[in-house]
Structures are given as C-alpha cells and as structure tokens.
C-alpha cells in the first residue's frame, strides 16, 4: 500500500493509495471524500456510482482504480461551472426530479453525458440514456421531464 497513484479528479491531481482490486469508487469516497458517487449495489446495476471518465459515464464501482491514471474523472462536485450541469440542476429542482437524492448524482452524470453528445434529445433518447440509473422514489417521469427541460434551456 506504500506506493500511490496520481488521479485527476475534478481537474485536480489527487494521490491515492493502491492495493488489491481497489475501485475508483473506493478511492473517491474513502480516500478523497468525494461523496457524490454513492455505493449502492456495488455490482454495476443500480447506477448510483456513475461518474464521467473522459466525459463518458461509467461505473466507478466496477472501475479498477489502477486503470485511472491520467484520465479525467469528473463527478458532480467538479461540474459546478458546467453549463449542462447547471441547467440540469435547475431543471431537477423545478420538476421535482430529486426526492431522497441517493440516485441523483449518478443520474446527473448520465444526463450530462447525453446533453454533451446529443443537444436536442427526444424522450426516447433520454430514457435510453438513463436506463442504467435506478430511482426508487420518483417513478422517473419528473427526471425525464427535467432532462428534456435542461436540454431546451441549454439550446436557447
């Protein structure tokens, strides 16, 4: 565990210890206290640990931290000034797309990646992009509405 690894998390270099099959999720939460990615199922199913790696949504719980050297790791914490994220956050508040909030950072990561790739997604594309993020509160309707509203706002 003596040797460390340099990660680029939210634009800053952060050193973390490595050892065994340590995951990016564990490095973020346990070492760096970046707490927006959640440890839900730890099996890649629930989506609450979804983060952006070089802009792509991936599962932090299934990502070996030793493969993250030199890649750009982004979580909600590092997207405060991002125009897509700002629009998404506003729209989620307005539509009521957040209830308990556990799934929200993962949903936002998936939605941010969608908006960056597809400026004017239709409802089907939003649902497809979010199909790997489970929410047990909202019933999804308000989430889908929020993403569509944010897309509209960004394109104005």
């Amino acid at each position: 565990m003596a040797e460390g690894l340099a990660l680029i998390v939210n634009g800053k270099i952060a050193r973390v210890a490595v050892g065994g099959a340590k995951t990016l999720l564990s490095a973020l939460r346990d070492d760096l206290r970046v707490l927006s990615p959640k440890r839900g199922c730890n099996q890649g199913v629930c989506g609450s640990c979804t983060v952006l790696i070089d802009g792509e949504p991936r599962r932090a719980c299934l990502t070996l931290v030793e493969r993250c050297e030199g890649v750009d790791v982004r979580t909600v914490e590092g997207l405060a000034n991002d125009k897509f994220m700002q629009a998404l956050q506003r729209a989620f508040v307005v539509s009521g797309g957040v209830q308990c909030g556990f799934c929200t950072p993962g949903v936002l990561a998936s939605a941010r990646a969608l908006l960056a790739e597809t400026p004017a997604p239709d409802e089907g594309e939003v649902k497809a992009a979010l199909s790997g993020n489970l929410c047990r509160c909202t019933g999804y309707r308000t989430i889908v509405e929020a993403v569509l509203a944010a897309a509209k706002e960004v394109s104005l």
Partner: peptide, 26 residues
C-alpha cells in the same frame, strides 16, 4: 486477465472470485 472489468469487478466485489493478481489487457 481483466478487460472492461464489468463482470470481473462485480464478482470481486461480491467476493465470488479472489484473484491473486490482475493482468490488465488494456
């Protein structure tokens, strides 16, 4: 060997497999 890790890391997290070493094919 580890490729995407999507199945292997899930099995490691569930303690279904306990490899002694991972050979990264990336």
């Amino acid at each position: 060997p580890i490729s995407g890790g999507a199945s292997l890391m899930a099995m490691i997290n569930a303690r279904l497999v306990e490899p002694s070493c991972l050979v990264n094919l990336e």
